[in-house]
Amino acid sequence: MTQDPGTAMTKSGYFTDLHNWLINEDFTSTRQARLHKAYVAWLSLLANPLAFAGFAVVVTLVIIAALAPVLTVYDPYGQDLTMALKAPSASHWFGTDEFGRDVYTRIVYGARTTLYISILVTVIVAPIGFVIGASAGYLGGWVDVVLMRVTDIFLSFPSLVLALAFSAALGPGIENAVIAIALTIWPPIARLARAETLTFRNADFVVAAELQGARMGRILLRHIVPLCAPSIIVRLTLNMSSIILTAAGLGFLGLGAQPPMAEWGAMAAAGRKYLLDAWWLTTIPGLAILVVSLAFNLFGDGLRDILDPRNA
């Protein structure tokens, strides 16, 4: 572990001390143990350049989304028809769209939309998927059969087709797109949670807790969640990419985000009408989607090596 490239960074005395304290496995407190774990994870992330690059892009995305007003000078919704479809230039780095809006500005604000969708879907899906999967695995019997049947039905559709059908049924709009995507993302999470739960179902500590009269909710929360968390987190990170791609696909088909909201997929779709005269309108949003979705994939891949080596 001392030959880890991370050590190269710790040159000054203070950092060396901190490094040694963190790396030392003779813990003196639980706090130290926890920090140790996080630190080791951090070091292994640094050791994996691709994963670290993915992580860096994700962090950048968050910063861009947070600082959008600072990073831009134009109004993302301000139209000026006299400036429509201008090619990239010093004043408009990524050109302007059919309403004369600055594409760079809209890409930056689009980062917010992308994060909004992917975080919201994840926040909805994680607990639902976990509860369904864990209860199926924990309770077994007919509960398991029924829940897994429902899961399988949802799994039997290709996910974009299902999302498309749901968001068409719910009507356009970003909230509806979130619901539609969530409906297609939860089944694999439930499957995973069930499988993980099954492996711990008869573990000594679970049986012991049951004997002490702990209720199911408490057992799931206290014992199963911490054990399932790593693999579910990895899965969710890898899912981010498919959430982003599905959202963009929906936006592309005119469902999802509605004007004037800046959303990359919808921007690419709108630009397709001007494909021959304004290549930047489809190319740049497409690249943005590609970069972010690749970053989540790389980061997720690396995270799996660190958190969940069993499934790597």
Partner: peptide, 24 residues
């Protein structure tokens, strides 16, 4: 039609009228 609608939406916003544009 949609471009015309989006243009109206942007101008209305300047006058304080918020139009929640729903395509479909």
């Amino acid at each position: 039609e949609y471009e015309v609608a989006q243009s109206l939406q942007a101008n209305a916003a300047k006058a304080g009228v918020k139009l929640d544009l729903q395509g479909g």
